[in-house]
Structure formats: C-alpha cells, structure tokens
C-alpha cells in the first residue's frame, strides 16, 4: 500500500525531521520503492512463529545497586550547544 504525501508528513513529524514539499515528493517515491521490497514479507506464513527481537535467546544480566559514577558535568557540557549555570538550555517548553 503506497504511502501518501500526508503519511510522509506525519512520519516526518513523528521523527522530527523537517521536509520541504519537493523533499516530501522524493521521500514518498523512495519510501514506496523500499516498501515494495518490504511488502514481500507479507507473502510468508509465519503463524505460530515467535518474533525474535534479540540476536539470541539470552536473559538480562543485572547490576548491583551501587553508585559507580562521579560528577563529570563540566566535561560533558563542554560539548553542549547552550548551557547556563549547569543547565542545558532549549527554546521555551510549553506544557
């Protein structure tokens, strides 16, 4: 089922990627060609097959509840676009 320009816009918004109108048209064409490849999955009967979300059937190893990290704020914030008094600054958030 081919994607419409509106679906491309919706997905781009979900992914927070600005697309111009020409870019939407290009993306639509390319995504549809990729989805024609992906659609071949639908033909296979997978009834009763458990989805495989990890590369092996292992279970998590847990860590003990201990503080192991030290403060590295200055180091981390030396590469930040905008900081003030230890805070990362962003355009105003409206709730």
């Amino acid at each position: 089922m081919p994607l419409t320009p509106d679906e491309v816009r919706r997905v781009a918004m979900l992914a927070r990627i600005e697309l111009s109108e020409p870019e939407i048209a290009t993306a639509q064409a390319q995504l549809n060609s990729i989805f024609s490849l992906i659609e071949t999955l639908q033909a296979t009967d997978t009834k009763g097959v458990t989805p495989m979300s990890h590369a092996g059937d292992l279970v998590a190893r847990l860590r003990e509840d201990r503080v192991t990290e030290i403060d590295q704020r200055d180091r981390f914030q030396s590469v930040a676009p905008q900081v003030e008094r230890g805070l990362y600054l962003v355009p105003r958030v409206i709730e």
């Binding site: 992906i38 999955l41 639908q42 296979t44 997978t46 097959v49 458990t50 989805p51 495989m52």
Partner: peptide, 11 residues
Amino acid sequence: YYLQAQRIRRL
C-alpha cells in the same frame, strides 16, 4: 511490518 519481520528473523 515490525512483528512480521521479527518472525522472519526467527525463520
């Protein structure tokens, strides 16, 4: 899509 792909992955 996603779940079907993961089932294929198992196959």
